[in-house]
Simulated assay, not measured.
Amino acid sequence: MATRTTDSPTAEDREFAFSASDYDYLRAMLKEKTGIELGPTKHNMVYARLAKRLRKLGMNGFREYIEFIGSDAGGDELGTTLNALTTNLTKFFRENHHFEHLATTALQEIRARAVSQGRRLRIWSAGCSSGEEPYSTAITLLRSMPDIKQWDAKILATDIDTEMVRRGTAGIYPAAALEGMPADIPRKYFEPYGEDKVRMAEEARNLISFKHLNLVAHWPMKGPFDVIFCRNVVIYFDKDTQRVLFDRYANLLAPGGFLYIGHSENLFGITERFKLLGRNIHRKIA
């Protein structure tokens, strides 16, 4: 999960009336429902993402749209609004040093523990967007663990955006998304799918369960997880929400489990339950 850019009209060019109070309402609603903080300067972004919904619904302005999503009749539209306002930009093997650490260190430690604790492996991709992160994780497992079929190995991939969950489940991507990968990865783990598209190989898809999840709401899973990816997600939350979130992650991680966070994120002043190993790689210590 990370910032996506979009062409945003200026106030003079706007087709629909969009007042400061309209923006403040949407900003407060997003914080209440998802924990995500929108800055005070995102008016144009919000307008650009929601104006298409007003057109489709035949509405005259944002006040009418706000009244609609707050009504019983607009319950489904509320989910569409949240999907539009959450941000999704990702790619395969983004911040690749995390996957290198997973292959060379985390999985080796988990394998060593398996002698006494059994061949169980659980990884969570929290804020998985359209699936590139959990599929990169699945490929890393398949390349690093030739005996993966002999393990009880599962990857949980969650996101608040239901459309991203749908895309991840489908596992279909533009062929251009494979550019820059080592040659063996496209050959082994992707298959042609229509014109200029590819689909993840079945063995990778079978490792992952995609689920809708709001990180600031109830978590149905029990853990423990050996590894959690939460990258470029918490930058959208205030410090208090971050403290709660990382405490919950620590509670679900196995002793000594690993946490990967984004390059612009850090845990300083947020939690003392993790030890920094380097390059936004943390180990649970409490």
Rank of each mutant, 00 (worst) to 15 (best):
T169S: 13
S116P: 00
V233C: 07
N96E: 15
F225S: 05
L78M: 15
E100D: 14
P9E: 13
K154Y: 01
Y47A: 04
P40A: 15
G127A: 10
R113K: 12
T81G: 03
A17N: 07
F92A: 04
I66G: 10
R243V: 01
Y65V: 12
F268Q: 14
G61F: 01
R4W: 11
I36T: 01
F190Q: 00
I281Y: 00
I160M: 01
A17H: 09
I281F: 02
G75T: 12
Q150N: 08
R283E: 02
D161W: 03
Y25Q: 12
E64Q: 12
L26P: 00
A48Q: 02
F229V: 01
P174N: 13
L54M: 12
E100Q: 13
D196Y: 04
R166Q: 13
R55D: 04
N83L: 11
F210Y: 06
I123R: 04
E32Q: 15
K31A: 12
R248Y: 05
W124K: 07
L215D: 09
L38S: 02
S129R: 05
S21V: 11
L50M: 13
F190Y: 07
L121T: 00
D247R: 14
E95D: 15
M145I: 14
A103R: 11
K211M: 13
A217R: 14
R122G: 04
Y236R: 11
N214Q: 13
L78W: 05
V216A: 14
V244C: 08
L30M: 15
P182I: 13
Q108G: 09
T104D: 13
K284Y: 01
A84W: 12
Y25I: 10
T87M: 11
A2E: 14
R273N: 13
A204W: 08
E67D: 12
L207W: 08
Q108S: 13
I235A: 00
R49K: 15
L245H: 10
L245F: 15
V227M: 02
I185W: 00
E100H: 12
T34C: 12
H282Q: 07
S71M: 08
F68E: 02
W151Q: 06
L30H: 09
R187L: 08
E179W: 06
A254K: 09
I228G: 06
Q117G: 06
V115D: 07
M221K: 05
G58I: 08
E132C: 04
E67C: 01
I36F: 03
K211F: 09
L277Y: 07
L89A: 12
Y23M: 09
I185Q: 02
Y193V: 08
E132K: 04
A2Y: 10
P9G: 11
V227D: 01
Q117L: 12
Y23V: 05
H101Q: 08
V216P: 00
A73V: 11
T158F: 04
L107F: 05
R55Q: 08
E64H: 01
D196W: 00
L102C: 03
N266C: 03
C230Y: 07
G118F: 04
A157W: 00
R187F: 02
W124V: 06
A157H: 04
A114G: 00
I148C: 07
G257Y: 04
E32P: 02
L50P: 06
F16M: 01
K275Q: 14
R167W: 08
Q150M: 03
E191R: 15
T81M: 15
L38C: 02
G58M: 09
M59E: 05
N44I: 03
L26D: 01
E77S: 10
P146W: 07
T5Q: 15
L121N: 04
S209F: 03
G269M: 03
K154V: 07
L156E: 07
V233Y: 07
